[in-house]
Design a protein around this nucleic acid. Structure first.
Lengths: 132, 132
DNA sequence: CTGTATCCGAGGAGATACTG
DNA sequence: CAGTATCTCCTCGGATACAG
């Protein structure tokens, strides 16, 4: 088996996967993670495991459906692990996997950007919407 | 006028804007930029101005509607500038503004992440989908 | 070349009700 | 508590046709 460095493998991957192409799996993955709910959920799991109800509280006014759906997708993609503690009532904890944690900086950056540049964007909108 | 450091201003902003709240403008902005097309367009503009038709070629199989819509949104939000060169036929160039360029590292990171971790995600999906 | 306008189907997303 | 199951509304997004 040939030995390859991580950067070499990345270089190969960038040849194989090209998100600009509609048919490329990476394009679908981009579509999956470039998502409001994914960003918020991953950010909410930044500091460790969280219970379902904790996430629901943190993400004010996310519907049960979207929260569950997002968590299922993240679990299936290996970004989040789900741990059920058999008790009455049952406790379910969600936690970022190592793979999920590798996405955290990106998700944090996008959320922070939105919060930090809100003023500039709003000013630009006013300018754009104002008839000369 | 009081002098404040950039980090102090950021701290204030993080108090005012909270993307976890549905009503917060930052939440809508997050929804806007956490988007497949935004990521691809901003990345495609990384190396300088691009014409409409260049973008259309680069983003294989983006429809006119989505490309135009995305560019309009980005222009309105002050992330992209639009320059029309009156000629026959007319030339239109799009370029990242300084604000748009501040978003570029984030958009690049998310696209790169998708391309680099595709294999791991696909492996996780197989595991998830395989009945024990 | 760079758009706008319109139609239409598929999926996103909330509200509500029900279950182990 | 942590979901699943519907129902419904609505936006996303592609296809097509037309215009400056």
């Amino acid at each position: 088996m040939p030995t390859r460095t991580a950067s070499q493998r990345r270089a190969e991957a960038s040849i194989i996967y090209d998100a600009y192409l509609a048919e490329c799996p990476a394009r679908q993955l981009l579509d999956r993670i470039a998502d409001k709910w994914v960003s918020l959920v991953v950010n909410a799991l930044a500091d460790g495991p969280r219970r379902y109800s904790e996430l629901q509280r943190r993400l004010a006014s996310v519907s049960q459906k979207m929260l569950t759906q997002t968590l299922r997708h993240l679990e299936r993609d290996g970004l989040v692990s789900r741990t059920v503690t058999p008790a009455v009532p049952v406790r379910v904890a969600y936690e970022l996997t190592p793979l999920g944690r590798s996405l955290l900086p990106v998700m944090r950056a996008i959320k922070d950007w939105a919060e930090e540049h809100m003023d500039e964007v709003q000013a630009a909108r006013v300018t754009y919407d104002t008839p000369d």
